[in-house]
Simulated assay, not measured.
Amino acid sequence: MFPSREFRRLSLVLLAIFFLLAADQGFQNWIKEFRKTAIASGISGETYDRAFEGITAPDPWVLEKARYQPEFVAPVWQYFDNRVQKRAIMRGREEKQRLQPWLDRIEQRFGVDPNILLAIWSVESSYGDVLDNEKVMRNVIRSLATLAYADPKRGKFARTQLLAALKILQSGDIDKSHLTGSWAGAMGHTQFIPTSYQAYAVDMDGDGKRDIWNSVPDALGTAASLLAKNGWRRGRTWGYEVTIPERKLPAGTLTVGEWEKLGVKRVRGQRFPRRDDRAELKLPDGRGGPAFLMIKNFFVLKRYNNSDRYATAIGLLADRIGGAPGLVHDWQRPFTPIDSAETEELQRLLKQKGFYEGEIDGKVGPGTRGAIKEFEKSIGVEVQGYPGREVLEQLRKN
């Protein structure tokens, strides 16, 4: 006679509990052993014990994020639409007005354009809104210990960052209850990993602490410190939208004047302010999309996040916060775009109809596109998954 379904289910539960307890004991043993490494690195036993007080098991959510990072690569239009959008632009202008005295002080000290700092703040933490989300903000010590103990791929990185986080705690800049960050340990309004915090953090507001979690001036000053120390050029932009000729153009870096001779021109008939700047041509969406000449500060932005898309998004959002118009040449997209408020409406309608379970945030990811596809299947139209006006009108009708 075969075991009943209930018996098999109970057996699986008991087996899972057994392995969980075994993992917990292994984790606790690891914490005891790593204490020696921490003390040898200059961390006091008191700091270490205080940091790990109450931490008895790895964080399963961190392991899930680490092991199941999606392979989905966002189309170019989706990447930029989620970051350079109306709500982020308007909020940036509001924050600029509110923080103008601090932004002036930071610019005077570090020479970094305040609009760039506001754009970084937006992209990294939605102007700090994400810091209140307990689902994604975790105990940094536990997160990094989890990765150091259980993730062979990130173990070395996590151990280095864990030691740095313990030193931050020991310094008194932040207490344990506020030492929170992403699943991989990125912290505060401007999402610094612990070693970057150690290298660049500043006490901008003068309270004796470098608090990027609770002090926006400290966070923005720290971002400016990173850019300044990596060669930011005061008073210069990051790049220019340009038009390019039909013929093939060389790869690599030329002066702006040399690019002009090859037929590369600024959009809207504008002139380049310095023809001797060295620049590289970037086509993020191929020849059919917008083209840019990128100069020194673009490559400094990549020291924050080594991605052409990231640095371009920061530059474009900063320009819009500063009052510049949008792109002359839009991204190549097979649908009619909608703004972030309309995207939230789209998500709401999908949720009401039972197709979407994610957050109503106006940002399109695989969850939103998957829900659109399911809706399109349900009404018998071509399944594409594009978050455009066409599908929004269908949702409003149905």
Results as ranks from 00 to 15, higher is better:
residue 250 P to E: 05
residue 136 V to Q: 11
residue 105 R to P: 04
residue 258 E to L: 08
residue 129 D to Y: 14
residue 311 A to L: 02
residue 395 L to Q: 03
residue 69 Q to D: 07
residue 23 A to I: 07
residue 153 K to N: 13
residue 398 N to C: 00
residue 244 I to E: 00
residue 45 G to Q: 15
residue 319 D to E: 14
residue 390 E to V: 00
residue 356 Y to E: 02
residue 129 D to N: 15
residue 111 G to H: 07
residue 84 V to G: 07
residue 345 E to T: 12
residue 182 S to T: 10
residue 137 M to R: 13
residue 154 R to D: 09
residue 398 N to I: 04
residue 190 T to R: 07
residue 250 P to R: 12
residue 359 E to F: 06
residue 113 D to K: 08
residue 340 S to W: 08
residue 69 Q to F: 15
residue 79 Y to Q: 00
residue 397 K to I: 09
residue 266 R to Y: 11
residue 275 R to L: 14
residue 363 K to G: 05
residue 207 D to E: 05
residue 352 Q to R: 09
residue 229 K to L: 08
residue 297 N to T: 09
residue 371 A to P: 00
residue 94 E to N: 13
residue 222 T to H: 02
residue 223 A to Q: 02
residue 201 A to D: 03
residue 232 W to N: 03
residue 364 V to K: 01
residue 298 F to E: 04
residue 147 L to H: 05
residue 311 A to R: 02
residue 227 L to I: 10
residue 20 L to M: 05
residue 266 R to C: 13
residue 89 I to Q: 03
residue 240 Y to T: 01
residue 245 P to C: 03
residue 123 V to A: 09
residue 1 M to I: 12
residue 193 I to Y: 01
residue 398 N to S: 15
residue 105 R to C: 05
residue 23 A to Q: 13
residue 331 W to V: 11
residue 141 I to P: 02
residue 299 F to T: 03
residue 380 G to F: 07
residue 111 G to W: 06
residue 106 I to P: 07
residue 177 S to N: 10
residue 276 D to Y: 10
residue 382 E to S: 15
residue 395 L to E: 06
residue 324 A to V: 05
residue 357 E to H: 07
residue 80 F to K: 04
residue 157 F to W: 13
residue 256 V to I: 15
residue 256 V to S: 02
residue 165 A to C: 13
residue 128 G to T: 13
residue 380 G to Y: 09
residue 107 E to G: 05
residue 177 S to V: 11
residue 343 T to D: 03
